[in-house]
Amino acid sequence: MGISKAELEQLSTEELLERLRRAEAEGDEAAGAIREELVRRHIGLVRSIAAEFSFTGEPFEDLVQAGYLGLLGAVANFDLARGTKFSTYATHLIKGEIRHYVRDKHGTVHVPLAVRALAGKVTEAQDRLFQRLGRPPTLEEIARELGVKPEAVREALKAREAMIYVSLDAERRAHDPNPDFNLEGLLAAEEGDLPLEVRLRIARAVERLSELQRRVIEGLFYQGKSQAEVGKEVGLSQRQVSRLKERILAEIRKELFGNGMSSKGEPDVEE
């Protein structure tokens, strides 16, 4: 399908993606040029998202590199049929890559102590103002309440989101490598779908419920032993024990709620 750079620049992102999928299916070498144009068009998005993570203290170009991987993943995997905007999907993947990069570097997201302390105060002020006003407070109202600049509150909110995200993500990956409740999706939902405050609140509730489940299951099935220890005793890997436990729980749910009640499917068991 020979196509010039100038022609590519005239196409919308969606048109480029359509052409890319077609070129890939046909083994057309124009796919490379289309990919380049898509990346060129969104590199500004990568840089602006990377800038949001400047509080981590990581070199900006390293953050951009990590985000770039997310962008490439988005170009490779975006599904036009899903009806989501490419920029929304790409933002999700870019943020995800940068967070993973930062977490791998630090074990957790590094948040300066002062920002961490302010994040805690912001949460308290939000709750206080919510009670007083009967509605979610604005950034400016929180800043006034705390006697700080709105920019500081914005920074603290970003840090808080990153801290919560990392905590949730680590928990989710540790206990459920193949979750059906997509917390990443919940926290990165398309702007305007659900207010950030709602997503954070629900995510925190889910996190606590998951932790409760984990503790009860451990007490019930393992009596103080780890999944790895139980697995060793019965000749299964930790992952197989985890899957088996999920299957047992899915069966219990099915038994009690019936097929229609739960939206959760039965996970496969590696045996």
Binding site: D180, A189, L194, V206, L209, Q213, V216, I252, R253, S262
Partner: peptide
Amino acid sequence: EAMELLISIAGIMDAVREAVSLLE
């Protein structure tokens, strides 16, 4: 008791999951 609690939590999680899907 533990099983009851697990089942109840699963039911709550299902309701939250459905709520999120519907709201979105």
